[in-house]
Amino acid sequence: MVTLTRLNGKQFTLNAIYIEQVESFPDTTITLTNNKKLVVKESIAEVNEKVCAYYQSINVLGLRRDMEE
């Protein structure tokens, strides 16, 4: 799960597995697998970083973060 911020400042948690694509229009827009769109304050790079960290934490992308060192 990743914590993101809506444009109104409210934070929410999103299951990153449901993210289909992330675009900038110029606001960052996340399209989910069910075609629902979410607009967030974070940049594409920040969303990517959070998603990669989430996948590492559940050991989908190789070594978990706490096992790297």
Rank of each mutant, 00 (worst) to 15 (best):
G9I: 03
E69N: 09
T33N: 15
R6H: 15
K41V: 00
N48P: 01
E46G: 02
Q56E: 14
A45N: 12
T31G: 06
A16R: 06
Q21D: 09
V39Y: 02
E68K: 11
Y18N: 10
Y54T: 00
N34G: 08
Q21L: 08
E49Y: 02
C52S: 13
Q11H: 14
E69V: 11
E69F: 04
N35W: 02
M67E: 12
I58P: 13
I19D: 05
N15E: 10
F12V: 05
A16D: 09
E69D: 10
E23A: 14
T29S: 10
Q11G: 14
V47W: 02
S24G: 06
F12A: 07
D66F: 07
M67I: 01
I30Q: 09
I30E: 06
V22I: 14
E46H: 00
V51C: 09
A45Y: 11
T5L: 00
T29E: 13
E20I: 00
L7V: 08
T5H: 02
V40M: 01
M1T: 03
R65K: 08
I17T: 13
V22M: 09
D66N: 12
V51R: 00
Y54V: 02
I19E: 02
I58C: 06
V40P: 12
T3F: 00
L7M: 15
K41W: 02
L32I: 08
T33S: 14
N59G: 15
P26M: 08
Q21F: 09
G62S: 06
N48Y: 05
T28C: 14
V47D: 03
V47E: 00
P26E: 09
K50W: 03
M1A: 12
E46Y: 02
M67D: 14
K50I: 01
N34K: 01
V60M: 12
A45H: 12
K37E: 15
T33Y: 12
T29P: 04
I44F: 08
D27L: 05
Q11K: 15
R6S: 09
Q11T: 15
V40K: 07
Y55D: 07
N59H: 14
N34H: 08
A53Q: 10
N15D: 15
C52T: 14
G9A: 13
E23S: 15
L14W: 03
F12S: 11
